[in-house]
């Protein structure tokens, strides 16, 4: 199996690569279209700001490429948000794979934004694996995807939001599996073990 990690102007791509390395997976970090197209699995990671990364994706024609992928694709953090239709972060039009809008966290009482640290997930879809329900994973984000029909896991912070999504061959997590200790490792393995 060969995994392509999409290379673009976002942080933490290396962290995802190191996690794959620990899982002894054959992968490459690439923005070459043919390499991404022929990979068995694609990971779309990201930490950063929505509008500048979308601009980069469009400039490199990666936006159309990602939308058209047929193999299992995993969006991570900003990657997941960019797979939605629109983000309130600098009013950004996104890829539109998931028919949802990304919203900004508004603190209700004494909650701090960004939502940062370890929080639990309640899985509502089996793709994340059976052993991770109610386990802690690591989050860092100031924007969120509301709970919707494609939600695969829910986390509660200020209000319930989508910790994971799934639609057709597209999978996404708001947290960082590459930084979520053994639980994160299990989730990455579940994605890598999916049969397309």
């Amino acid at each position: 199996m060969k995994v392509a990690v999409i290379k673009y102007n976002a942080g933490n791509i290396r962290s995802v690569a190191y996690a794959l390395e620990r899982l002894q997976v054959d992968f490459s970090i690439t923005d070459r279209h043919e390499e991404i197209l022929k990979a068995d699995k694609v990971i779309f990671p990201g930490v950063g700001e929505a509008s500048s990364t979308m601009r980069y994706l469009r400039d490199h024609k990666l936006d159309e490429l990602i939308k058209a992928l047929q193999q299992p694709v995993l969006g991570v953090c900003l990657g997941m948000q960019l797979m939605c239709t629109y983000s309130e972060e600098n009013n950004t039009k996104c890829l539109g794979i998931f028919d949802e809008e990304v919203k900004k966290f508004i603190p209700q009482q004494k909650e701090k934004v960004p939502h940062m640290g370890w929080n639990t997930i309640t899985t509502t879809d089996s793709w994340l694996g059976e052993r991770v329900n109610n386990q802690y994973v690591y989050f860092v984000h100031g924007f969120y995807v509301p709970v919707n029909e494609n939600t695969a896991a829910i986390t509660q912070y200020i209000q319930p939001f989508s910790a994971a999504l799934k639609k057709d061959n597209f999978y996404a997590v708001q947290f960082h599996p590459e930084k979520s200790a053994e639980t994160g490792q299990k989730i990455l393995e579940s994605f890598l073990n999916l049969t397309s």
């Binding site: 996690a19 620990r22 960082h176 590459e178 930084k179 979520s180 200790a181 994160g184």
Partner: peptide, 8 residues
Amino acid sequence: IAHHLNIP
């Protein structure tokens, strides 16, 4: 450290 550690 980054290669080996699976927490932030």
